[in-house]
Design a protein around this nucleic acid. Structure first.
Lengths: 332, 332
DNA sequence: TTTAGCACTCACTGATAGAGAGTGCTAACA
DNA sequence: TGTTAGCACTCTCTATCAGTGAGTGCTAAA
């Protein structure tokens, strides 16, 4: 693979990324100044196809990069591309300023990434390991209602509004809570069992038990990794997915957050964090690429941000953007 | 509009709902036993078209119901259709059992509705009016961190994890909270201003101020109506939307939760809560129908559940399902 | 009033031809 | 020996056209 072949390959990749049309030898000769004639380029293209970097949709069409071609291109980009300062400023403007809490921040990130790239963005919130009970508390409200809330040792809070049953006073509830706090403090959430507990009270307090179950479920869910999508419908803009069947396959994957989660995880464990076409584990996404970056909140909890787009993706720009954003939110 | 015309119209509507193909006179004569010949039906069809209940895609095609035709059909269904007992059981199985808290419950509802109908479901969570501060509290965690949480008088909770600044002890924080609780108890959230407050302390506590702002924003957001979608991609299954341009228009609307919210609200204020085709305010949805039902949590807070599908929707079934589900979740 | 018959309309299908883009090969050239 | 011009060839794409079939509207008979 000599220098000129590289140039030809890169020209084709770049042109195809821009136009989504198979690229012919004449186009290359005209548009990129390689100083050789179309015929020469044709010869190089034939070689590149033989080597597996290019493909031909049909005999008399131009060439299209193969997954391998994109891979070569991406690996060759090397030294992290820089974001334009205009875009960097945009990121700072939208994600900087007043920090608005983890959840809102991550949603804003997902939205921003999808707008800037015109692809679909995926944000995975950081997960905690085996949360423990830190505090259970009731707070009275009007109309015989009360909030019950539960805090984990990671500071995650779940809450539930409860109508206080007839046979119970608010003070009774408070007493129960005090007992639970005493008994179960710092106990792993998955080992809490409230069902048998309320037998200690004179009467069973069904409403309360149910609220407890609900709280635990809720808390565990919040503790676990969540998936936030941005611009899921951006795929509709890509010409390669104007076929409804393909669209459906991809959107169905995006609806299944479990799948998305695993996908991003495998992509992230990749050293380079870029999965191109068939490299990624889901058949449905064999015409898509996924780029993933990792961020850290407070130096501890790690999550991921990804961009999902067609294999014909603007790799340098997306890589630059993701690495910038992940650094930015890690620092703030 | 005599009895036979009604029968012809209904047959066409039903057939078209099932097949999505323009319906011809012969088909009606064969498939529905009206006791008259195709020629007669043709005459009736011509009349119905003149009256605006039917449309013809082109001269030599069968007839398709117009919005007005669907409207007539829907109004004529009258006395609420009943859900099959099998489906009712399914609803009970998935939404009954242990009540798992409002949020999870509503998400489960959205999912269930979309699966049962194969259309897109929209769930609007109930809104509260002008929430007030009920309680602010800090809870210490390990590693110099603490949870700050804020509870509104409606029992909605927002929380934020805070790293306690060097120049502050946990007790300082607790004291600040005590002061705020004393000073601002039962004050409407939108009138809280913490920025000037911390000037009272010896040093400005920026981290704390920011956490407060974040909490308020978060709380207000949670208090407001939220939109939960189920099966947004089900639209892809409808033959009338195999055109990507139409799809994009609809999915874009669904991505804008503000729009969806207004849409459901206008639909719900409709007495019958059914918007057919051009009846509904968004141009993009002029080939869709929306059916909305209202539910109440705890007898107070009202929210909505809707189904969005093509105008060619299985109205009776969807109406039955929605009214059953809304009753079910209102009672539980 | 209903129905049978019939001419007419129009989308859809498949075949065919021509245009255009692009290739691969050969032979000439530097 | 590498590069280039020329040319035949391939294949898709588009337009055109005839044939088919579903369905209609009208007319006249029952």
């Amino acid at each position: 693979m000599d220098e000129r072949k590289r140039q030809v390959l890169f020209s084709i990749v770049r042109d195809y990324i821009q136009t989504a049309e198979p690229v012919g030898s004449r186009t290359i000769a005209r548009r990129y100044d390689l100083g050789v004639s179309p015929a020469t380029i044709r010869n190089e293209m034939a070689d590149l196809e033989e080597l597996g970097y290019l493909e031909q949709p049909h005999t008399s069409a131009g060439r299209v990069p193969s997954d391998r071609g994109y891979r070569f291109y991406v690996d060759a980009i090397g030294g992290l591309p820089e974001l334009t300062s205009a875009e960097a400023a945009l990121v700072k403007k939208h994600l900087g300023g007043k920090l608005r809490g983890q959840e809102l921040m991550l949603e804003a990130t997902a939205r921003l990434l999808s707008i800037l790239t015109n692809y679909t963005s995926i944000v995975i919130t950081p997960a905690q390991a085996r949360p423990k009970l830190r505090l259970l508390q009731v707070i009275p409200l009007a109309d015989h209602r009360a909030v019950v809330m539960m805090v984990s040792d990671n500071g995650v809070v779940a809450n539930e509004v409860l109508t206080i049953p007839e046979n119970l006073s608010f003070d009774d509830l408070a007493e129960i809570c005090a007992y639970i706090n005493y008994q179960y403090n710092n106990v792993s959430l998955d080992r809490l069992q409230f069902a048998d507990f309320s037998g200690r009270m004179s009467a069973r307090i069904e409403a309360f038990e149910r609220a407890m179950d609900s709280l635990i479920a809720n808390l565990e869910r919040r503790e676990s990794d969540r998936v936030v999508l941005g611009g899921a419908t951006n795929i509709l803009n890509q010409p390669e997915f104007k076929d409804v069947a393909k669209l459906r396959a991809i959107l169905r994957v995006l609806e299944e957050h479990d799948l998305v989660f695993k996908l991003v995880r495998t992509s992230a464990s990749n050293p380079a964090s870029i999965s191109i076409g068939a490299e990624n584990p889901l058949e449905e996404l064999k015409e898509c690429s996924i780029i993933t970056a990792t961020y850290r909140f407070g130096g501890l909890k790690t999550g991921h941000i990804s961009i999902l787009g067609p294999t014909r993706m603007e790799y340098p720009r997306v890589i630059a953007l993701l690495s910038f954003v992940s650094r930015f939110i890690s620092e703030s």
